[in-house]
């Protein structure tokens, strides 16, 4: 089962739910893979503390120009939709940070002066920790190519009973990149006006992607009932309510698993996992 933990609003508890759910499922003997696709600020590993990590460069294609072969015709710059090239005289200036690797320039160059090179936009990291396979992407600071790195983390999907993707917040390209390939989406929200506003937006995206989804209300009891009312009206299942409890925040701040730190939490996550597995079976049927 491919599960994506998403939310419109940041800071609602996606990572907390993703990590604790992954560990709860692992402890029940399931083969679990956790993919942290929040590549601008990956943090699942902070709670799992892997001892050894396998790191490699996340590479994207970029043009390499052989100056001697270039006659300055300008076709490369003309085809580039990302404005990553400029031609001055018979020399091509490349702005790699604007390149989306579409291949247009090296395909169109009549002199074959441009070839496909590569550059690193960040790291791809894999680790095994406590029976759980963790993978995450870490985008270099100042880099804007979020979706390609998410796609590379997503491609590390292997053989598992349960693959959990921790998505970036919001409803933009990066969140959508993290949702692709999922069978079921868990939208984490909080019972506040901000939580509701962004839940409405996120649920709309998930609906347009035609993915089944349910809602986890974190910090339940902290706000009001509008999220509950909206879910009921929209027919969205509330999968779990995590009570507003200072001990959860304290465990998070220490980098501990909520499962181990807060009495009763292990039961909540085990129930959530079973509900999700049941939805997966229903979805496949």
């Amino acid at each position: 089962m491919n599960l994506t933990i998403a939310s419109g609003k940041g800071g609602t508890g996606k990572t907390t739910v993703a990590v604790n759910l992954a560990v709860a499922a692992t402890r029940e003997g399931r083969r679990v893979q956790l993919l942290d696709c929040d590549v601008e600020e990956p943090n699942c590993h902070l709670f799992l503390e892997p001892e050894t990590e396998r790191r490699r460069d996340a590479l994207v294609p970029v043009p390499e120009v052989e100056e001697a072969a270039c006659n300055g015709c300008g076709e490369c710059a003309a085809i580039c939709r990302y404005n990553a090239l400029a031609v001055v005289g018979s020399s091509v200036m490349v702005f790699p940070e604007l390149c989306h690797g579409c291949a247009g320039c090296w395909l169109v160059c009549p002199e074959q002066a441009i070839t496909r090179g590569e550059r690193s936009i960040g790291d791809l990291v894999e680790a095994d920790v406590a029976g759980l396979r963790l993978a995450y992407g870490r985008l270099n600071v100042g880099e804007a190519l979020v979706p390609p790195l998410i796609a590379q983390v997503s491609a590390l999907r292997g053989d598992a009973d349960l693959t959990i993707v921790d998505a970036p917040p919001g409803t933009s390209c990066s969140a959508i990149a993290a949702l692709s390939g999922s069978d079921y989406v868990v939208l984490v929200t909080e019972p506040t006006p901000f939580g509701l506003n962004d839940l409405v937006l996120a649920a709309d995206v998930v609906r347009q992607l035609e993915l089944p989804c349910g809602v986890v209300i974190n910090r339940a009891g902290a706000g009001d009932d509008r999220v509950h009312d909206w879910c009921r009206r929209e027919g969205l299942e509330i999968l779990l309510e995590i009570p507003d409890d200072r001990r959860v925040a304290e465990a998070y701040a220490r980098g501990d698993l909520v499962l181990d730190a807060v009495p009763g939490a292990a039961d909540l996550y085990r129930d959530l996992m079973r509900t999700l597995m049941a939805r997966a079976v229903e979805g496949a049927a």
């Binding site: 990302y82 990553a84 090239l85 400029a86 001055v88 200036m93 702005f95 604007l98």
Partner: peptide, 12 residues
């Protein structure tokens, strides 16, 4: 993106 680069290209 890259409006400045292409405006400069226009100047060239």
């Amino acid at each position: 993106q890259g409006a400045g680069i292409q405006a400069a290209q226009t100047m060239v």
